[in-house]
Amino acid sequence: MNRGIRVALIDDDASVRRALIRLLRCAGYEVETYATAADFLGSRATARVDCALVDVRMPGETGFTLVKFLRASGIPMPVILMTGDADVTLTAKAARCGAFALLAKPLTDAALVEAIEVAVVREPPVAAKPPNSR
């Protein structure tokens, strides 16, 4: 299954990070982890990773802010958002921002892997399209 796909995991919760690193590695992905969106952007990882797995609710910049920033910067990297209180409004908001998917926490490995696989194989549907133009 290892096709050298590299995933960035951004979540402020250390315990969640540890669990998801294990899960993703066992699933055959390479994983980089960051506690905040700022850390992620500062590391210039956008050039290396194929996909970002981002918690919506974080101190400082939230997951939504990060997606908006990437789309505004023209970075086509697919972003999968995760949240504990997913509902229709939030899902719609995620799609509007240009996120690839919004997954409900807690995540099942099947859903997670499927989301990553689809996101990476398919190029981002709204690639290079500035979200602000809507």
Binding site: D13, S15, V16, R18, A19, L20, R22, L23, R25, C26, A27, R57, M82, T83, G84, D85, K105, P106, L107, T108, D109
Partner: peptide, 29 residues
């Protein structure tokens, strides 16, 4: 507080589920 409570409750659950599924995969190696 619901939103933040749901978040607070789902964080450990995410950890648990993630860890458990990782472990299952590890055992499959």
């Amino acid at each position: 507080l619901t939103a933040s409570l749901a978040h607070e409750l789902n964080q450990p659950l995410t950890g648990i589920l993630g860890n458990a599924q990782a472990a299952r995969r590890m055992l499959g190696m």
